[in-house]
Amino acid sequence: MTDDLSSPPSTQRGERIAKALARRGVASRRDIERMIEEGRITLDGKPVTHPATFILPHDHVCVDGKPIDPPQRTRLWRYHKPAGLVTTHHDPEDRRTVFASLPKAMPRVVSVGRLDLNSEGLLLLTNDGSLARELELPSRQWIRRYRVRVFGLVDEKKLQALAKGCVIEGVHYGPIDATLDSTKGDNSWLTVSLREGKNREIRKVMMGMNLHVSRLIRLSYGPFALGNLKPHELEEVAHKTLIDQIPSLKPKKARS
Rank of each mutant, 00 (worst) to 15 (best):
M1R: 14
D3C: 01
D4C: 11
P9R: 10
S10I: 15
R13L: 08
E15Y: 06
R16L: 12
K19H: 12
K19R: 15
A20Y: 14
L21D: 04
R24I: 02
A27F: 03
A27Y: 08
R29V: 07
R29K: 07
E33R: 07
E33K: 10
E37D: 15
R40P: 13
R40C: 07
I41H: 02
I41D: 00
T49W: 03
H50Y: 12
P57R: 12
D59K: 02
C62V: 01
V63S: 10
D64C: 07
G65D: 09
I68Y: 02
D69K: 11
P71H: 09
P71S: 11
P71R: 07
W77T: 08
W77K: 09
R78Y: 03
Y79G: 04
Y79R: 12
P82K: 06
A83N: 03
A83I: 03
A83L: 01
G84K: 04
V86P: 02
H89N: 13
D91G: 06
D91L: 02
P92T: 06
D94R: 14
R96G: 03
T97V: 10
T97M: 13
V98Y: 01
R108E: 13
V109N: 03
V109S: 08
S111Y: 05
S111Q: 11
V112C: 09
V112R: 02
V112Y: 02
G113P: 11
D116H: 04
N118G: 08
S119I: 10
S119T: 14
S119H: 10
S119N: 12
G121C: 08
L124K: 00
L124T: 01
L125K: 04
N127E: 09
S130M: 11
R133S: 09
L137N: 15
S139A: 06
R140K: 15
R144G: 02
R144N: 11
R145Q: 10
R145C: 03
R147P: 00
R149P: 00
G152M: 07
G152R: 05
L153E: 15
V154D: 00
D155P: 14
E156M: 04
K157Y: 08
K158A: 12
L159P: 00
Q160G: 04
A163M: 10
K164R: 12
G165S: 05
G165A: 10
I168D: 00
I168S: 00
I168A: 01
E169M: 13
G174E: 10
D177P: 00
A178F: 10
S182P: 00
G185H: 08
D186P: 00
S188R: 06
T191R: 11
V192I: 14
S193D: 14
S193A: 15
S193N: 12
R195F: 07
E196P: 07
K198N: 09
I202G: 00
K204R: 15
V205A: 02
M206G: 08
H212V: 09
V213W: 03
S214C: 15
S214R: 13
R215D: 08
L216H: 04
R218C: 11
L219D: 05
L219A: 07
S220I: 02
Y221V: 02
Y221N: 05
K230I: 03
K230G: 07
L234H: 11
L234S: 14
V237Y: 03
V237L: 04
A238M: 06
A238Q: 13
K240Y: 10
T241Y: 03
L242K: 12
L242W: 13
I243A: 04
I243P: 03
Q245G: 04
P247G: 06
K250W: 13
P251A: 13
K252N: 11
A254E: 14
S256G: 11
